[in-house]
Each structure stands twice: as C-alpha cells, then as structure tokens.
Design a binder for these strands. Structure first.
Length: 126
RNA sequence: GAAGCUAGCUAGACAGUCGCCGCUUGCGCAAGCAAGGGGAGGAAAGUCCGGGCUGCACAGAGCAAGAUGACGGCUAACGGCCGUACGCAGCAAGGUUUUAGCAAUAAAGCCCCAAGGCGAGGAAUAGGGCCACAGAGACGAGUAUGCUUUCUUCGGAAAGUGGAUGUGAAACGCGGUAACCUCCAUCUGCAGCAAGACCAAAUAGGCUAGUGCGCUAUGAAAAUAGCAAGGCGUGGCUCGCGUCACUGGCGGGUAGGUUGCUCGAGCGUACAAGUAAUUGUGCGCCUAGAUGAAUGACUGUUACGUGCAGCGAUGCACGACAAAACCCGGCUUAUCGGCUAGCUUCAACU
RNA sequence: UGGGGAGUCGCCAAGUUGGUUAAGGCACUGGGUUUUGAUCCCAGCAUCCGAAGGUUCGAGUCCUUCCUCCUCAG
C-alpha cells in the first residue's frame, strides 16, 4: 500500500536548491509548462513551483495552478526517478483546461522517466 | 399592486475517495503515528486616512513642513459616522407653454422638483498675486457715445448725470478668485512586524592566549633533557612591538531557526439610555495563523439562475468579484444573484 | 511593506503665475521638381492630452478617486 502523501521533505524550499536546479540547465517543455530537473541524492523526488505574476495577474489563479500541479505531482510521485523538479507555468490555464494540462504533465513525466533510465521502484511501506 | 431609493443579511447544500496546515489528547528518545476538533472575504483588493503594538528620539517653548475646516454630537482616533441648518444638481410624479395632429397623443422647453444624492462650505477692511478675449475702463483711476447746464473762434471745450455697448461676473459695491500664496483655529516626534526580542553554522575580519624549525642523546612511540631561536618591517645591532603560519577561547554578527502570532476598541443575544451615530449592563461563545507561503482536486445527488434544443416532459452546458500575510476602525474600487425591512410617489379598494 | 516617477498623433516628444488654433521631428497621404527614383519644396493628416468626477468664466495644467507601466530599498 503506497501512501500518496505530499510531505514537507518533498518540497524544495531553499534558495540554494532552486539555484542549483537552474544552474544545471536541463529543461523540457510543453505548451503550458516548463520543467527543469536535476538528479538528487535523496530517496524521493522533490518539487518546486514557479508561477510568476506575469503569467496570471490574480492571486486566485496563481494559487489554483500551484494546487493543481502539486496534486498531479502527489499522485504520480512514485513513478518518478529521484529528481529535483522545478515546474514553471508558461501560459495560464483555468478549470476548463485541466484535462489538457494533465495530459501534458503525463507526457513530460514519461519523457523524464525515459531520459533517466535508473528508475528504481521505491516502495515505502506505509 | 407598480415604480424608485436607502439600509441590513447572505455569497448554494449534502455525501464519498485521495490529500494540505495549525491546535488538543494518547503513544514514541526522536522522526512520526492514531483519535477529536478547526481552517479565506464582504470586499481579504487598492494602500487613501486614522489608531493599537514595537523600536529610536525627547526639560520646556517656538519655527519649519504637512493635514483638516458650517454648527452640535459619537469615537481609541480619523479626512470617518450621526443629527440639524444652508447651498448645488436633478429623476419619477405634477403644473404650464409652443409645435404637429380633427382628436387621442407625441416631441421640445420652462416651473416645481418626493424619498434619496452631492457639497475641501472658516476668513477677501491683515497683506501680496492674478482676472485672457471683448471692452472707454478690470479695482489704480477715469470718460468713448447720449442728455442737461455754461462758454464758444460753431470745429468744439468744461462740469454734472444716469443708462446702453461688449464681459463668466462687475460698472465702483469695499467685485471675483483662498482645490494661487496667505491669515486664523485645531491636530501631527520619526519609522515601521522585513518593527522588535532570542538561539546560532561555514567563511572573512576584530580582541585575546599559546605554539613554532632543526640538530643531538634516551626511548618502540609519546615524551624528556641539552644546543639553537624562522621570514619581513621598525635606518645598523640588541630588547621590544607589528606582521606572516598553526591551535584554542571570547564578543559582534550573516545564512538558517524560534518568537512577535492571534482573546480582541472581539462576536451573538436580551434589556436600558439616546431622534441617531453610539454607549452601559446581564447572559452565552472562542471563530485561520501560513512563511518558495496551507484552506485543494475528483466523483455522485440536489436547489437556484441563465443560455441552447424540444409542442411538452425533459436533456445538455455554464456559475459574480475575487485569496488572509501583525491586528483593528473607516473610505474607495470590483461584483452573478437571492432574502428581509424602511421611506417616497402613483393606482385601486374600504 | 514602504518610497520615487511616467502616461500628449502610428513612433520620439515640447507644452507653468490656468487663457483664444496644443509646438516640432520621423512616419503616412496628395501634389510639384526629375526621363524615373532618392533628395528637395508645398499642402494635408490623426490626438476631448490614460479614465471618471470636481474647483473655476475657462482645465493638458489645479484637486480627488481609479487604471496601466517603469523604478528603488530592505
């Protein structure tokens, strides 16, 4: 039984961690999202989100996008290799675009898994 | 019943699955786990005012700078709110005029304009500045035309006088303008939770204490004893001092963390005082505290509204503005709707 | 969170004791010069001055409230 919890340790918080992901300059993109990634030495992937004020002016929509992306990460975190991910939103999306964003996220996830072949199943017993 | 206006309340509901952030209790060294209970707004927004709180400054008084301005009240305070008076604009209704029409009526204008709205509305003999164009003349004074009287070289001149011209206003009245300077009265110390307090890596620098390399002897080593006392600067030498290298300690303090951090000018209700804003008393309640920033996603049932399809039953789609960041009182701006009161006008009935 | 600044024609912009028609330059349009084009000359053009309200006889200008953008401090 896997736990789908999104714990605090799976969050990128420090400025140094963000900078190191940016400095590696590995990125893949889809129409709505840009994902930068960097392998880490932990036993779980970590997530950082960037939604600029330029993409959506209202705080309501920025928070919505962050929540949706965090939810997608939470549900798929055990199919991901050990990476530090920084997801940046390029184009704003609303509730009507949810399915498309989900497809894009799955596609990016597949790409990431194929680029880093050392996917090992981490089963954390609950 | 219709129309308009004002004020207040509300901002779909329920259930399930997977999650997020605090609190309490239990277990655990801890990480954490389990249970219970809580988790965005009327504007949280803009940051336009006012306070609490915190730090710094401060004998007292004054100046500068800024803000406000009817009168009375409320308040912790305000540029806010309430009441009264005054002014302004003006909708509905009403009255009236003109035009069109045989008429009904329609259009335009004027008057009066409910409830409600708006009003930076103190002082212009304390002083300064400005008042374009037009006009003779713009506040100093003075006279272009007309009329009267007098004089006359018959061209006019002097005195007086009230109107017309043009102007936004005004023809001398102590003009208008203080959202021009200013004067008067009142108020304001400055900064802001990234305030402030505490704990405290690494690196560099500060203070301070100490050690220095090599050789010989003993010894397995640690060490002990003896000899010798590094480089550079302080003019040459010695001492001393500074500096360079290493080690330890101290203090400031950065990253980071903890706190400030949510019980408060608090909310609900009843009664009383007051026209009201508001206040007092009793009873009851605890209602978010995040920090790369929680309050979500999906599914089902259902209520309401709108749109589309359909004769209809019904089906499908959509759901306003918008997210706390120390906390309050206001203002302003955005907003799909729903509900409840009150006021005014009109119509009908009694 | 707290300061500072900007918005005038398609672009760059001037515009102060508030005053008659809001300068200029580039661009564009039409005409002229030229065999044709460039250059040059003449004429035109579009702005209710970011939006709304107010003060005033009169606002680009003064005041208030909004909108958009830029920038600074920690």
């Amino acid at each position: 039984m896997m736990s789908f919890k999104f714990v605090k340790q799976a969050k990128i918080v420090k400025t140094d961690d963000f900078s190191s992901v940016f400095n590696l300059r590995k990125r893949i993109a889809s129409p709505h999202l840009v994902v930068r990634y960097k392998p880490n030495i932990l036993d779980r992937p970590r997530l950082g989100l960037i939604v600029g004020k330029k993409t959506a002016k209202l705080a309501v929509w920025r928070n919505y996008m962050k929540r949706v992306l965090r939810e997608l990460f939470r549900l798929n975190q055990y199919q991901l290799p050990c990476l530090d991910l920084v997801i940046q939103v390029q184009k704003p999306f609303k509730k009507t675009d949810f399915l498309q964003v989900k497809q894009e996220f799955d596609h990016l996830l597949l790409k990431l898994s194929s680029k880093t072949p050392t996917v090992h199943a981490r089963i954390v017993a609950s």
